[in-house]
């Protein structure tokens, strides 16, 4: 069972503002999902290597040849607050960590 306090902590990590009622619902729903998922923790997986990726490729690098990329204008075209110098953002202010 996920406590409300844990939900608030995870929401903070995920930069997701949840209302009180959203957080309560989330605690119930996530607990139900986690209860279902818990079963795999009972499996004997001693010595089994984890799979992070199914394709066995290493150092799949392209040739180091310069190529055209987006212009600054293209890159900034969809920004909510484009500035001459780049992406404008609000002040980090008091909430910064």
């Amino acid at each position: 069972m996920l406590e409300r306090q844990q939900v608030d902590h995870v929401a903070r990590l995920a930069r997701l503002e949840l209302s009180d009622s959203e957080a309560d619902t989330m605690a119930v729903e996530l607990s139900k999902i986690l209860d279902h998922i818990e079963a795999i923790r009972a499996l004997d997986l001693e010595g089994v290597q984890p799979t992070s990726h199914v394709v066995d490729l290493v150092n799949a690098l392209r040739a180091d040849v310069p190529q055209r990329s987006l212009t600054p204008q293209q890159a900034l075209a969809q920004a909510p607050e484009p500035t001459d110098a780049g992406f404008g953002v609000p002040s980090p202010g008091q909430g910064a960590e």
Binding site: R15, L16, V89, P90, S91, G93, G95
Partner: peptide, 13 residues
Amino acid sequence: DSDLDTMYSRTRA
């Protein structure tokens, strides 16, 4: 008029 961190959280919310 929020700060950066609050902007992140509200935008995503």
